[in-house]
Design a protein around this nucleic acid. Sequence first.
DNA 1: CTTTGTGAACTAGTTCACAGCC
DNA 2: GGCTGTGAACTAGTTCACAAAG
Lengths: 231, 231
Amino acid sequence: MLSLSRGRSPASLPAATVARLPAYVDALAECARGGHVTVSSVNLAASVGVTPAKLRKDLSFLGSFGTRGVGYRVDVLRTTIADVLGCHREWPVVLVGCGHLGTALAHFGGFGERGFRIVGLIDADSAIIGTTITVGGRHLQVRGPEHISQTVHQTGAEMGVIATPASAAQECCDRLVAAGVSGVLNFAAIDLQVPPHIGVRRIDIAAELQILAFHQWHRGSAPGAHAERSA
Amino acid sequence: MLSLSRGRSPASLPAATVARLPAYVDALAECARGGHVTVSSVNLAASVGVTPAKLRKDLSFLGSFGTRGVGYRVDVLRTTIADVLGCHREWPVVLVGCGHLGTALAHFGGFGERGFRIVGLIDADSAIIGTTITVGGRHLQVRGPEHISQTVHQTGAEMGVIATPASAAQECCDRLVAAGVSGVLNFAAIDLQVPPHIGVRRIDIAAELQILAFHQWHRGSAPGAHAERSA
DNA sequence: CTTTGTGAACTAGTTCACAGCC
DNA sequence: GGCTGTGAACTAGTTCACAAAG
């Protein structure tokens, strides 16, 4: 693979850097749409909301892709980062929990754009089981939690998204993991226990609002305690 | 306020600590539901997914609330942290974007439990404007973006949630800020530009999946590059 | 004994500032 | 001139380990 030949081992990237790579890919896609062939660290950083130095440091972990005095080639950089993130392959995903949030996620276009394909729908509510949701042009039928294992095996899914109530989340997670899933995105308000080598990330929507509320509540005396933003 | 009399100025809390406080409140609520009167840092930390030392350090920024040899009183600790976060008051919130995600957020119970009350619904789609969504027992009518200012003023909202497509997010954000909102939770895939002293937090759902995919993609050679989890 | 609270040591992340290259 | 790439300095965050308290 030519585009990676100059790159360093991607496994050794700092976690903070990895967390910013998706935003870089997005911004580069936007650049490409705007017809730009090259982009400087200052411009790219501005559209991501990050300092130029941080951006350059992040990219330096992947290798040397820029041209001094010019900037980065948009297409090269985008392909390189997308490669590192695994965007070139398809990621089948099982979605557990088809209430309001789960349904919203099923219809969410952002997954498909980045290689994630929802291939299975699970819910415990008998009123929902058996119904069909159209996701990305495919008609998927919602199945009960007892079919998690079967669904994972049939679809080859390696990742699961949990959008159930907190009370059901751990059990569903256990089933996903037992079936071989090794990455879980958790929207439930509970800390999931998983074996080592299983990746978990949690999105706690209400907590984010509370953090925002805290800063507002104490603003006036707060020094620099605001949310991260570019300098 | 007696419960804060022993506390340090909350404005000087480290950002990382603030980000964990909501999880502590949740875990303490769960403790209370379980009938526990006291809880040790080890137990509480385990249910949050954090190390005991980190938990104790976090709490030490708020003051001294534990009893050596015993632990923390669940009710005292919960009240104290909730106070610091501003949970004792109601936070009216305007929700901009009533597509799948916005609707899911409108129905999301987690907001109400923590003092956030959705008091206004905005969308640009003429097919949605005028329709009614029932949120927390109240019937709210969806209004067009040109009514953002009016809605904010009528409801006294200080916070906004943006769940629009990326293309509309900045404009809606500008309207919210112009109307006096000073905290924005952004689900759109774009970095919002705001004046200083306005708080913004972004939730990028697809990015979270990509981060998870990265670790999976490179697992085997990755050393300790997994998502944060307790020790 | 058990468990908190916290300085000190350590680790991760960010910013600076400039050499090197175009 | 402009811009990248990167060591060095700095800042924030975490963990350690133990004295103090019940």
